[in-house]
Design a protein around this nucleic acid. Structure first.
Lengths: 304, 304
DNA sequence: CCACTTTAATTGGTATTACCGATTATGATA
DNA sequence: TATCATAATCGGTAATACCAATTAAAGTGG
């Protein structure tokens, strides 16, 4: 059995990969350039393979090097988690917690969540980041985030998840347009191109189309909005209807408008909200408690 | 940011946990007892918490210590995998591969699989271990095994899997008992207590009951067998019928008997065979190729 | 064409620490 | 009480991690 590589050298490799420059990587690692340089060479020797190609002035990560970086990132993330876990004495709901959330949930959840967690767990240091599902998953892998609040179903890519609850979709339109409709609304009563949705990168779009059985795309307007608030504007201007999640409506997104929220057809016209975290975590218990806190704030909690 | 624990010290902790004795753990780690002792103390200082309670003669792992051991095992397994991966130059299907398999698959797969892999990938060093699903999953976590061939569905516990294919269940009985039955066999034509199954710890039992919609437990004989070959003996002695997977029949388990295999009722009377591996692995590509090789040997390959 | 800058590798010296063998302290056992 | 087994401690040594300074090579600007 050959000698294990040192975590320090692996972290040097990560820093080099991030900064693509020995000096800056060394600075970021709080060591001298020579230390980092020999650390990398050391690592290459221990692993028995070339990680970077040097061409006398600059360098390039080999394909092998890239793969080692990926694996090393995972190892270091786990180790840092272990350290955090141990240093907080294994106490639940303490220490830093970096939470990612998608834009169609964040504005209607994080305010209340922040308040409720502060009150229940004052030692928990919350940090939020709002981004798309795929970006959040990348940051989760990198160890830059600890857990994500997402709309399911998605490809979990080996992560674990709790299902927190359901968030029903409502069909929202101006009250004058809605006057001669009965619930649940059958879509072919609506004119073509009268339904407005978000841009494609928002998973809400796909989930709404699927959940509300909106296969007939002729009803969908090709113009796409960038936020739920834009959709509200569009609907309030009587340009058409849209789908909004119950969470947003509960938090008053329709206040000051002349819009009404109708029950759409579709057997289960709702999205599921889930909490996603790394399979390698050492804080399962904390995530469980976090899941309970979040579920309590959802329209239809179904923690599992 | 505090200093990361060293992998060496973590491995000392694992050795100590395994041997429950400083001297033996030190010997197994190829260091002196004093080195290991101070290594552990060092680790406790870095982690800022007590890992073992010393009572002047013996010691006991604290709950914290146990949890650190679990996480450390995962970290060290990942690191060893990285080392293997790098040292084999990242080549696919090379180096050691420790494969676990359940007893209701192993005898009917591993022979052919071994031959086929030897021919296709002569540099792959295969090792097999046969055990129950839950034991195999433990060994996978520990890093003692690299991948498992199991019957799905199971709780993956954060591992990843490929579905390799379907393995239909057949209702097997003596040809005289079968003479006045028509396929697919409706179970209430059978006498009570006439169906024999394996012991509870074999997942085949549960899967067969579920897949063949055998909810009516009055038909199931309370005597349980310990192997498929025992079931064949029982059926051949005209004591009753049993369920056997197609794989076993294809490999000739009924040869030399007077048994016939009938199609059971039940919409999808089959089990799925899957390959399970750690989410933290660095050998996904290798497992993919392995999955292809295994799938090719199944009755109904459906790799996904 | 030549200073000047930037880059990564190399060198030599120093401080750290990893490790061992020996010793000690403490229960358990005979 | 003597002996044994165990884990912690101690003192010395070998290994190595690290830095500052230097070198080598390749751009850059005048």
């Amino acid at each position: 059995m050959s000698k294990l590589p040192s975590l320090k050298n692996l972290s040097y490799l990560l820093a080099l990969h991030q900064h693509q420059n020995f000096n800056r990587a060394a600075e970021a690692s709080h060591v001298s350039q020579s230390t980092l340089s020999s650390g990398i060479q050391n690592l290459e020797e221990q692993l028995g393979c070339q990680l970077i190609e040097r061409d006398h002035k600059s360098f390039l990560f080999t394909s092998m090097g890239e793969q080692v970086v990926d694996q090393a990132r995972q190892i270091l993330t786990s180790t840092e988690e272990l350290l955090n876990f141990a240093q907080s004495q294994g106490k639940l709901m303490e220490g830093p917690m970096r939470l990612g959330c998608i834009p169609t949930i964040a504005p209607f959840l994080l305010g209340d969540l922040s308040k409720s967690l502060q009150r229940q767990y004052p030692k928990l240091q919350l940090n939020f980041r709002e981004d798309t599902t795929s970006n959040l998953l990348l940051h989760l892998r990198n160890g830059e985030l600890d857990a994500l609040v997402l709309a399911l179903p998605i490809d979990l890519q080996g992560n674990l998840s709790y299902v927190l609850g359901r968030d029903p979709f409502k069909l929202v339109m101006h009250k004058q347009l809605a006057s001669d409709l009965s619930e649940p609304v059958i879509y072919n009563q609506l004119p073509d191109q009268s339904i407005f949705l978000l841009e494609r990168e928002h998973c809400l779009t796909g989930h709404a189309v699927a959940a509300c059985e909106l296969a007939d795309s002729a009803k969908i307007n090709p113009f796409t909005a960038t936020s739920l608030h834009s959709l509200v504007q569009i609907a309030d201007a009587r340009l058409g209807a849209t789908f909004l999640p119950q969470m947003a409506i509960d938090r008053g997104i329709l206040n000051g408008t002349d819009l009404v929220a109708l029950k759409p057809s579709g057997h289960q016209a709702a999205r599921e909200i889930g909490l996603v975290y790394r399979a390698t975590t050492s804080r399962r218990q904390t995530f469980r408690k976090l899941a309970e806190s979040i579920a309590a704030l959802l329209p239809e909690p179904t923690l599992s």
